[in-house]
Design a protein around this nucleic acid. Structure first.
Length: 283
DNA sequence: TAAAGTCCCTGTTTGC
DNA sequence: TGCAAACAGGGACTTT
């Protein structure tokens, strides 16, 4: 499931394959992945033909391919989206939804998405951040990221800390996996009340977020059951480094207590029942 | 199956 | 007190 590190790996992987290439044709094989492009699939295709791609950019889990006219192809991988680069004529892998062909006759770009939570749309980005994602906060690796502001915003909330970490308008790029891993590293319970956390504690947790996602990035991202792969089809290795997520009943690497899985927000949360305890309520 | 991330809807709280 | 805006939480969407 692609979160920030996986999306960044994809972005870097795309750079040598798309920059400076002119799109010659676009094939939309399923309407759902372009559902956010309100003028429809035909307009989506028409708008792109003849355009040249610039260097891919990213904020949080969103990735966009800027075009030479200031617009951009804004994409989100959802939970199973992939970009694949393959020579023309290569048999399609499963779930190819959109295909871009290029004027140079070289490898084509395929957007594959089994579960179709992801999507693409042409955005009037005007050379900057697409307006559709202007409400998304900077991610921890951007220059615009300001930890002080994020700490303050989190402490103003009245909710559980994991819910706040997953709120892309506070800080972007964090999904279920890295939320659990960061909470484990910082020894924080997922349900910890945000307004009861000290500023240094929140700052510590945000530092853990950066640490965890930075390490994942170095290892090429996390991979699960082939849902996330590099543009060449290879998967990342960070899943071998997970300490909490998906580790139910396995010993906590820190204290040996079995990791527990609990339902939270219609999802699973993994935590060490010893390292990550909920403090007694202050109210 | 259960699992994922985002959007949308609803209900509540806050601020002027 | 009244109203609008912001916030919080839950479900839908989709596939295997």
């Amino acid at each position: 499931m692609p979160e920030l590190p996986e999306v960044e790996v994809v972005r870097r992987g795309l750079v040598p394959h798309v920059v400076g290439r002119e799109i010659s044709s676009v094939e939309v094989l399923h309407p759902r992945p372009v559902r956010r492009h309100l003028p429809g699939p035909i307009d989506f295709a028409d708008r792109l033909v003849g355009r040249t791609l610039l260097e891919p950019a990213r904020r949080g889990k969103y990735l966009w391919l800027p075009l030479d006219d200031g617009e951009a192809i804004l994409t989100h991988l959802g939970m199973s989206g992939q970009f694949r680069v393959d020579p023309p004529g290569t048999p399609d892998q499963a779930h190819v939804r959109v295909r871009l062909r290029f004027a140079d006759g070289g490898p084509e770009l395929r957007f594959c998405d089994q579960r179709m939570f992801g999507g693409m749309q042409v955005s009037d980005a005007d050379g900057g951040i697409p307006p559709e994602i202007a409400h998304i906060a900077p991610d921890p690796f951007e220059d615009a990221y300001d930890p002080d502001r994020v700490v303050a915003a989190i402490r103003r909330r009245r909710t559980g800390i994991k819910r706040a970490l997953l709120d892309q308008t506070l800080v972007s790029g964090i999904g279920n996996i890295y939320a659990d891993e960061s909470l484990w590293l910082a020894r924080v319970h997922y349900a910890q009340a945000t307004d009861a956390m000290s500023a240094p504690r929140v700052r510590e947790l945000l530092a853990a977020v950066r640490t965890v996602m930075g390490e994942a990035l170095e290892q090429g991202g996390t991979s699960f059951d082939s849902l996330y792969v590099h543009v060449n089809g290879e998967s990342g290795y960070f899943d071998r480094s997970l300490n909490a997520y998906g580790q139910e009943d396995l010993p906590c690497p820190r204290c040996g207590t079995p990791i527990r899985r609990e339902a939270f927000m219609n999802r699973s949360s993994y935590r060490c029942p010893r390292c990550q305890r909920l403090p007694r309520s202050r109210r």
